[in-house]
């Protein structure tokens, strides 16, 4: 295969990345967003690995020939992108771990992992804060130091 189709690795990398990007933007489920982010990054790994390849290249390792002597048998693929991507894989796994830890905590505090429902609750939180502020002008001392303040902050306030 030659020409544009011959570099099909790059087509796959772009397709993987775009699927990932679509998932990150369009999926409301946070776990799916995390998976999509992983896919997005995997596409980039493929890109780096693909750029290391040269025609007829092999792995850059010592090979033992018949008489017991060791020697290089080139040409070799560029090992540097492989090394870089090992690091990037570690990074990607860490990102996924932090994302999942956050999602677990979000599930505990919001009771859902659907982004649109969480967004609605966040807006409700902010509105409650705003109304609590507006109400504070009108309410008397009892409401400010007792039940009213606790309630207004959704019970999450640790003053």
């Amino acid at each position: 295969m030659t020409g544009v189709l011959g570099i099909y690795n790059y087509w796959i990398y772009v397709i993987l990345m775009m699927i990932g990007l679509y998932g990150v933007i369009a999926k409301p489920n946070l776990i799916k967003q995390a998976i999509a982010l992983g896919l997005f990054q995997t596409g980039i790994f493929l890109y780096y690995i693909s750029m290391a390849v040269i025609d007829g290249g092999t792995a850059p390792v010592w090979t033992t020939v018949q008489d017991g002597a060791q020697k290089f048998q080139g040409p070799y693929d560029n090992p540097l992108p492989h090394v870089l991507i090992l690091t990037a894989i570690v990074v990607s796994v860490s990102v996924l771990a932090v994302a999942l830890a956050l999602i677990i905590n979000i599930k505990r505090r919001y009771g859902t992992i659907e982004a649109d429902e969480i967004e609605a609750m966040d807006i409700a939180d902010r509105l409650a804060e705003f109304h609590a502020g507006a109400a504070a002008d009108a309410v008397d001392e009892a409401a400010a130091e007792g039940h009213g303040l606790e309630h207004a902050h959704g019970g999450h306030h640790h003053g």
């Binding site: 990007l21 990150v24 982010l37 999602i103 979000i106 919001y110 969480i118 967004e119 959704g154 640790h158």
Partner: peptide, 24 residues
């Protein structure tokens, strides 16, 4: 900041996703 306000969690996750895409 989640013990002060649960919004810290969603703020962090949103930053994580946008930040990771940016870093990628």
């Amino acid at each position: 900041g989640k013990d002060m306000h649960r919004g810290a969690l969603t703020a962090s996750l949103r930053y994580l996703i946008l930040g990771s895409v940016g870093a990628s």
